[in-house]
């Protein structure tokens, strides 16, 4: 793109440079947008895709989430329900180290059993701890709220 035409007077008086200085001066006194995370927490959008959870009572072990997951995070096995009426998951592992939080599993689930929680503080010291089993997925992992 060619530079816009400038009159020699505008060049000599640095009008464009002064406009720039004016812009930065205005921004100097505007409120800043930084959220000082451990001290203050930002308000999460309701649609925020955080750590995944599975409602054990709803899941019908249909394997749809396992199939659609682009990263193959989910491994599960199910059997015909005894007393429960339908199929249920016997084991269900979800590897958060692989998950890209795309939300496809949540979208595809016919009974809305798997869903994204609003939690994001899932850091652990051992990578294996990122693989959540059914109990953790049902109750939610131990959440550490960092203060400092």
């Amino acid at each position: 793109m060619p530079a816009p035409e400038k009159s020699w007077a505008a060049t000599a008086l640095f009008t464009d440079l002064i406009t720039g200085l004016w812009t930065t001066l205005r921004y100097t006194f505007k409120p800043n947008v930084t959220v000082r995370y451990p001290l203050e927490r930002s308000v999460l959008h309701p649609n925020f895709r955080g750590i995944l959870r599975v409602d054990d009572d709803l899941c019908i072990a249909c394997f749809l989430c396992e199939k659609i997951c682009p990263d193959n995070c989910i491994v599960l096995e199910g059997e015909k329900g005894l007393g429960k009426g339908s199929k249920y998951a016997t084991y269900f592992y979800l590897d958060h180290a692989r998950c890209l939080f795309c939300g496809l599993c949540e979208e595809v689930c016919p009974v809305d059993a798997i869903y994204h929680s609003n939690e994001f503080e899932g850091a652990v010291f051992n990578r294996a701890d990122l693989v959540h089993d059914l109990a953790i997925l049902h109750k939610g992992h131990a959440i550490v709220h960092y203060e400092r």
Binding site: Y27, T28, K30, N32, T34
Partner: peptide, 13 residues
């Protein structure tokens, strides 16, 4: 600090 304010940040805190 000033650079941070220009960029709507906080700078060293």
């Amino acid at each position: 600090k000033v650079l941070a304010f220009i960029q709507s940040r906080l700078g060293p805190m």
